[in-house]
């Protein structure tokens, strides 16, 4: 199970955002992508998720477990993503948020409830099922967000500066929580950040998005 990027690049209005990228993320490894703001880091993650706004044009090939992702809609790619904000759905309780992630193949109310309870207990949040997400602390919300993503049984994990908004004392704890889970589940993980400390903690290879050379992207190479 690994995530492969082959000559991937993005352009907006005919302007290429970064030079073609080749990347392989093996299971359980965290690869960090760094680059200045506006370099297309977040758009790259959008491309992997399948939620790239139509204004962008993409080139290259993306494979997960050898399967080309190009034709799959976002909901069938099984790629989990965490953003800087936890984005817990404010109209749902903690348990309902987690159940949103849990695939429908887990059948029966009792089984689903047990799966949610087990995840919460394992994260040190036992008994939090009925809580309103708005009443949790920042660290608790970050953990619930990761649990929700993992319960959806992703085959890869994307992290879009997920620690940026946590205060310094929390950041290290949440970081190790996320990384240890990603490793334990053997997920190929792509971390996008501009904080060198994140990259260091991830412990994996670091890729810097090179600014595109002056050339304009040709339409011939487009796979989109």
């Amino acid at each position: 199970m690994s995530l492969e990027l082959e000559r991937v690049s993005l352009s907006l209005d005919g302007r290429r955002l970064f030079a073609p990228l080749d990347l392989s993320v093996p299971p359980g490894e965290v690869v960090t992508v760094m680059g200045p703001s506006g370099s297309g880091k977040s758009s790259l993650l959008d491309l992997l998720c399948g939620t790239l706004p139509p204004a962008f044009a993409a080139e290259g090939r993306i494979r997960l477990d050898g399967l080309d992702l190009a034709t799959l809609p976002p909901e069938r790619r099984r790629i989990g993503i965490l953003f800087q904000d936890d984005l817990l759905f404010p109209h749902l309780s903690v348990a309902e948020n987690l159940a949103f992630g849990l695939p429908p193949q887990v059948r029966g109310r009792r089984a689903r409830r047990a799966a949610v309870a087990a995840a919460l207990a394992e994260a040190g949040l036992a008994g939090f099922e009925a809580r309103d997400p708005a009443t949790l602390s920042g660290g608790q919300r970050a953990r619930v967000a990761l649990l929700r993503t993992l319960l959806a049984r992703p085959r890869a994990l994307l992290l879009d500066e997920p620690f940026g908004k946590l205060d310094v004392s929390l950041r290290a704890r949440v970081r190790s929580f996320v990384f240890s889970h990603a490793r334990a589940e053997a997920l190929p993980t792509l971390l996008v950040t501009h904080d060198p400390a994140d990259a260091q903690a991830a412990g994996g290879p670091i890729v810097r998005l090179a600014p595109a050379t002056a050339e304009r992207s040709g339409p011939s190479a487009s796979v989109g």
Binding site: C49, P73, E75, G80, A152
Partner: peptide, 23 residues
């Protein structure tokens, strides 16, 4: 990003509409 999160958690367009946006 709420919509993107829901999509990456496996919700299709209808699911996103009924279970996330509308509520």
């Amino acid at each position: 990003r709420y919509v993107r999160s829901a999509q990456c958690l496996g919700a299709g367009p209808l699911g996103v509409f009924w279970r996330v946006k509308l509520p």
